[in-house]
Nucleic acid binder design. Structure first.
Lengths: 325, 325
DNA sequence: CCCCCTTGCTTTAACGATTAAGCAAGTTAG
DNA sequence: CTAACTTGCTTAATCGTTAAAGCAAGGGGG
């Protein structure tokens, strides 16, 4: 590995001048700067991040903590984050907070020990990450007071609920996955908030809820809104078992626009997060905090987008009533 | 941040002794070592990875390069890798080689610049990562001469083909996603290798292949084997459009046992990778290489596992022929 | 003509750890 | 009793970079 010292010897100048020329700081003549740059390239000089980190106290590394790396959203977040980080010459060190809040604390500690300049944390459901001595951006949901940026989950819930109302459904089921998740609670709160009080609606949770929801359809409900595409797919399978057709007999919606939701049958109406925008803002926020600025937009949410596909349609009663006319 | 120097001053000994006591090297009395350890804990001492990296030339960081972080397998690889790495006190820096071979080279360079001790690379389809001056483990497939560890994709193909044969299918379709992918080519080679020569089989590729495969079913084929659950789901949707039922009229198989394959309808017969084992071996190999040892098992494959679900069954001709008896 | 400022470079001291070499005291062997 | 070794510590150099401070030479203002 060629160091600044070797370039200095090679060119007969001091290491300080090399450093100044390469970083653009200090005072070095244009001509010498150019020569140094050229020579450094020729020699294949690559600055030692370790030395730089030691001297400046900055590693140029961001820590990313996720509750479960197998979360289907993780890849998309990781990818956008990684691109945005590249642009700013930052690296991304990942850590899995696997299941527990304790593991989350452990993960934070490990990343801190590695000297990360900042942290991006998607908290465990129902937890608040411990305070840390480095800048942190929290990706959760608006109702979390520590939230730095997130999708407007409540708004997304409202979007899908209004869609279901608009096409004529009046007897609905809402199905959530995990009551502990603030995100899912916000989604459901958004749905409920968009429904007038004369709409009949049941809310179920978890695995057991899948059957309850299907049963409710047999008792007259015409639409099931879930908080996740994965749950929607499960419901779809249960409905199939009971020979209830989607969307003819019941409309079905998901959340998050996962890979399979456009290719399953029927293609699933869902609500998409603008993951790019969220990741990009997260990096903006954390970068600003690292530079000591007050980040603009901290705490704001990013609108969600309704993706209407074939799993939702006008309730069959309306159709049959309409047809005779 | 408390440094070794401060502990040294605090306790009236030299920094070398602190370092020796804490790392277990050199010669320090048991008693003093214990005292130093205690005091270091009290003061909340955390070694500076930057200083250590600078002096020793080792960062304790592994680079993970994937062709597409949104690849559904990525989360599982990342998670297991991250757990195994934790055990060995290693960190994982991620990089996306987004699409092109050039980007892959770029990603490698970025990670190298950060001083990673080793690299784990899932190469871009049809490419070989450039040679790098650090230990590298390649996760691809057996037919890649540079492969360090991977699932036995050909073996997996053979497993699923034999299953289809066993239950009585004689006219088959194989459907691949991308001809450029060595992984998919190996899977298909494995399928074909397991089929006797009197079996009728067509091989199609890509988007267009989905319709061709469905058409072939209408022309008498009774089973479709795909190289990915995602493709299988697409086929399933196309079959539904043509009112061909799975598995009554045609059996369908996927690959990779993705999140949705157990909950779609019908639940998909597929072939699962032992991702844990692969990730764990990858870390073993890279760790061995970093320590200068020759890794055991390099180049070996990990067996795949057939997961039989409802999407495959005895061909209907056999059933109808059998029933009258 | 002298003082002061600017420019362009060098000197020097860090950052926090590791590690080879050194040294004093105590131990063992012959 | 002395030479040689062991034990337990210290000294000092080093990894590669940055940055404050210093200094010589040239230029401009009064």
């Amino acid at each position: 590995m060629v160091s600044i010292k070797q370039i200095a010897n090679d060119m007969g100048v001091s290491t300080a001048t090399i450093s100044n020329a390469l970083t653009g700081k200090g005072r070095v003549s244009q001509e010498l700067t150019a020569r140094i740059r050229t020579r450094a390239d020729e020699l294949g000089y690559r600055p030692s991040t370790a030395a730089r980190a030691l001297k400046t106290g900055q590693t140029g590394i961001l820590g990313l903590v996720m509750p479960d790396l197998t979360n289907p959203l993780f890849p998309r977040i990781a990818q956008t984050l990684s691109m945005e980080a590249d642009k700013r010459k930052l690296g991304i060190l990942i850590a899995d907070s696997r299941g527990s809040a304790d593991e989350q604390t452990e993960a934070l500690r490990r990343l801190m020990d590695r000297g990360v300049d900042g942290l991006i944390v998607v908290p465990q459901k129902g937890t608040t990450p411990d305070p840390v001595p480095v800048p942190i951006a929290v990706l959760n949901t608006a109702s979390d007071p520590g939230n730095s940026v997130s999708a407007d989950h409540a708004g997304g819930g409202a979007l899908v609920a209004r869609h279901i109302l608009d096409i004529g459904h009046r007897k609905l089921v809402i199905l959530g996955g995990d009551k502990v998740s603030e995100v899912q609670r916000d989604r459901i709160a958004g749905m409920r908030g968009a429904l007038p009080s004369d709409i009949e609606v049941d809310v179920f949770w978890g695995e057991a809820g899948v059957e309850l929801a299907a049963a409710k359809v047999q008792a007259g409900a015409t639409a099931i809104m879930t908080t996740s595409d994965l749950i929607a797919l499960q419901v779809r399978t249960e409905l199939m078992r009971r020979q209830i057709s989607v969307p003819d007999q019941v409309s079905l919606t998901g959340f998050d626009n996962m890979s399979f939701s456009s290719i399953m049958h029927p293609a699933l109406t869902t609500v998409a997060q603008n993951v790019d925008e969220i990741a990009s803002r997260a990096i903006d926020i954390i970068s600003a905090k690292i530079s000591g600025d007050t980040p603009a937009q901290e705490g704001e949410t990013v609108p969600m987008r309704l993706v209407v596909r074939q799993s939702t349609s006008i309730p069959s009663q309306l159709l049959t009533r309409r047809r005779p006319q």
